[in-house]
Computed example of a mutant assay.
Amino acid sequence: MSDTSLLGVEKAELGPADAQHIEKLVYMVRGQQVMLDYDLARLYQVETKTLNRAASRNSARFPEDFRFQLTREEFDNLRCQIGTSSEETTGHGGRRYLPYAYTEQGISMLSGVLRSDVAVQVSIGIMRAFVEMRKFIANNSLLFERISSVELKQLAFQQETNEKLDRVFDYINTHTESSQKIFFDGQIYDAFSLLIDLIKRAEKDIVLVDGYVDVGTLNLLAKKQSGVVVEIHTFGNTRLTAADIEKFNQQYPQLMVKYTSAFHDRFLILDHKEAYHIGASLKDAGKKCFAVTKLQDLGLLTELLHKLQK
Rank of each mutant, 00 (worst) to 15 (best):
N249W: 07
E151S: 15
F235G: 12
K153C: 10
A243R: 10
G83W: 00
S149N: 10
F66S: 14
N173Y: 03
Y189N: 06
D3K: 12
F290P: 05
I232K: 10
H272F: 02
N249T: 03
Q81Y: 00
R67H: 00
K135W: 10
Q254R: 14
V9P: 06
E163V: 05
L208N: 08
K283W: 00
L240F: 07
L305Y: 06
H175D: 00
S116T: 09
A243D: 09
S193R: 11
G8A: 01
V9H: 12
I126D: 03
S149R: 02
A101S: 09
S178Y: 07
S226N: 13
S193C: 14
Q296R: 08
V209Y: 07
L305N: 00
S108Q: 03
F130Q: 05
L240P: 14
N162Q: 06
P16D: 01
V9T: 09
A262Q: 10
K204W: 09
R96C: 07
V122K: 12
T71P: 12
T89H: 06
V230C: 12
D244W: 01
Y276W: 15
Q121C: 08
L208D: 06
E64Y: 03
N52L: 08
T217L: 03
L218E: 08
D297N: 13
R96E: 07
Q45I: 01
T302C: 06
F183C: 00
Y38Q: 13
V215L: 11
C80A: 15
K11C: 11
D39N: 11
F192N: 05
V213W: 13
L155Q: 09
N140P: 09
L40R: 05
G31R: 03
A242S: 14
V113Q: 03
L110I: 08
L114E: 05
L270I: 05
Q33L: 11
E274I: 00
N173S: 07
F130E: 02
A17P: 12
A119V: 06
E87W: 15
V26Q: 04
K11L: 09
Y100F: 11
V122E: 01
D190R: 11
A60Q: 14
D210F: 08
Q32G: 11
N162A: 07
Q250Y: 12
V118Q: 15
G93D: 02
V292W: 04
E246H: 15
G15S: 02
E23V: 13
P253G: 10
V122M: 08
V9N: 13
M28V: 02
E203M: 09
K247Q: 07
E74D: 04
T217R: 14
N249D: 04
I172H: 04
F75S: 04
D18K: 15
G94L: 00
K310C: 01
E64D: 09
C80S: 15
Q309G: 04
